[in-house]
């Protein structure tokens, strides 16, 4: 069961990543696309047990860092998505999260995740103005929140079904 769960979670990350780089650029606004990998990580952190969610966040980040056409310093998305998974797992409630709570968590996760990525870039010497960074981050948050109603419920249902403890609850 555990192995199956890991496989399904990784498959969700792969599908999200491929859609993010191959489908959504056709709909992108100035190249900014919804971060589907981040949505998968948040959905997992809100549903499955925290250690698995942390590992999934790290794995999704490494995939984003290494899959073509990525060319930034590897490890930056891994760091950002690990933190996102940690925070989302911390804020999750004991009851089934309400719609507003989920949207709020996604918005916060998107803002924090993209910001961490941008900040590591600044630390490593990227020449970007703060205004530019903020513009990209805000548009990214809007994209992620817009997609939340379509992506999060099915993902959380999927993860919930795979986790026997939560399925029975």
């Amino acid at each position: 069961m555990n192995r199956l769960r890991a496989l399904v979670a990784l498959a969700a990350v792969v599908v999200a990543l491929v859609l993010q780089v191959s489908l959504f650029p056709h709909l992108a606004w100035q190249g900014i696309v919804p971060n589907l990998c981040l949505l998968v990580v948040v959905a997992a952190a809100l549903t499955i047990d925290a250690p698995s969610a942390l590992l999934l966040g790290f794995a999704a980040g490494v995939a984003l860092d290494l899959a073509p056409p990525a060319d930034h310093v590897a490890g930056r998305w891994a760091l950002a998505l690990t933190v996102v998974a940690f925070l989302a797992a911390r804020v999750r409630q004991d009851v089934r999260p309400t719609a507003v709570a989920v949207v709020g968590t996604v918005a916060a996760a998107s803002f924090i995740g993209t910001s961490i990525f941008a900040l590591t870039g600044l630390l490593l010497g990227d020449a970007w103005s703060v205004a530019e960074l903020l513009r990209v981050i805000v548009v990214a948050v809007v994209w992620d929140v817009l997609l939340t109603p379509f992506v999060l419920p099915p993902l959380m249902k999927l993860f919930g079904r795979l986790d026997p403890r939560w399925a029975s609850a």
């Binding site: 900014i32 696309v33 941008a118 990209v136």
Partner: peptide, 15 residues
Amino acid sequence: VVAVGPSQSFSNTVT
């Protein structure tokens, strides 16, 4: 072009 890097990654690359 089959894939485009997201602008959130702050680099302009394509596959």
